[in-house]
Simulated scan of single mutants.
Amino acid sequence: MSETSTTAAKGIPKEIERFDVIFRIQHVVMFTTFLLLSFTGWGLKYAQAPAGVSSWWIRVWGGAETAGIIHRVAGVTMLLDFIWHVIYLFYLFATKRMTINLKTTIIPLPKDIFDVIQNFLYFFGLSKQKARFGKFSYAQKFDYWAVFWGMFIIGFSGFALAFPMLVSHIVPSFTTAWIWELLSIMHSDEALLAIVFILFWHFYNEHLKPENFPMSWLWITGKISTEKLKHHHPIEYELLFPDEKKSRKD
């Protein structure tokens, strides 16, 4: 008997919901605005180049003025989406639909450090056992909290550059000679870091691995198969299906 039919016989569902529809909508808004910001932002950065790819690319977006409008609208939308996400988390905690559990929390824990060490020991052939993860691995936690850091740096600097007259009221007068140039550098350099991070870290880990290629459907359906959950997140699996854990021990 196959493992799938065995779990079905035990009353274990084939899939479980990992992210509800609100989280999925927030993710769609986030990556849509991120792509718009990436495409228009780098076109704007080199919009004054007399010729070449940059000049052609900015014309695709209707010129620097139109691209600037799209960039600002996408940036404000992303900030609002981020604020909506934080408020929604507080709502889930307030209604007790979400609680802090060491086996399911997205909060970094000392265990994550030991998981990194354990995984590297496994990768180098010094251990036969991989790290066992709860709901989120250390890589997924790093992926998630990187957004908060990026939103703080890119969000604040971008807001300041988009609305300089408004922000100038809170900027100390002794910084006026260099603060705007600093904010511009912060914004573009952190944006480059975010683009590289998303392409080489997030896309690979969530979509381009052989087991997920060409794409994980989790961001659309919000569901993960219990077989994949058992393989990648065994601690969460045992938390959700404690009877099977007991039967294996027996």
Rank of each mutant, 00 (worst) to 15 (best):
48 Q>Y: 09
48 Q>G: 07
54 S>L: 09
57 W>V: 13
58 I>S: 07
58 I>M: 02
62 G>F: 05
63 G>C: 07
64 A>E: 12
67 A>Q: 04
70 I>S: 07
73 V>A: 05
74 A>Q: 02
74 A>I: 03
81 D>G: 15
83 I>C: 07
83 I>N: 06
83 I>T: 14
84 W>C: 14
86 V>M: 08
87 I>A: 13
88 Y>P: 02
90 F>C: 06
92 L>D: 07
93 F>Y: 14
93 F>R: 10
95 T>D: 02
96 K>N: 12
100 I>N: 11
101 N>A: 09
102 L>I: 14
104 T>R: 14
105 T>Q: 04
110 P>C: 03
110 P>W: 01
111 K>F: 09
112 D>P: 06
115 D>W: 08
117 I>C: 06
119 N>T: 11
119 N>Q: 12
120 F>H: 15
121 L>K: 15
121 L>N: 10
121 L>V: 07
123 F>V: 14
124 F>Y: 12
124 F>V: 14
124 F>M: 14
125 G>S: 00
127 S>W: 03
130 K>L: 04
135 K>Y: 06
138 Y>E: 07
139 A>T: 11
139 A>K: 14
139 A>C: 08
140 Q>I: 06
143 D>I: 00
144 Y>W: 04
145 W>V: 02
145 W>E: 02
147 V>E: 10
147 V>H: 11
150 G>I: 01
151 M>L: 08
152 F>N: 04
153 I>F: 00
153 I>R: 01
154 I>R: 00
155 G>V: 03
156 F>A: 09
159 F>E: 00
159 F>K: 01
160 A>Y: 00
163 F>S: 09
163 F>P: 08
164 P>W: 03
165 M>N: 13
166 L>E: 12
167 V>H: 07
167 V>N: 05
167 V>F: 15
168 S>P: 06
171 V>R: 01
175 T>I: 02
177 A>T: 15
178 W>G: 02
178 W>V: 00
183 L>A: 05
184 S>Y: 14
186 M>P: 00
187 H>E: 03
187 H>I: 04
190 E>M: 13
191 A>P: 05
191 A>I: 06
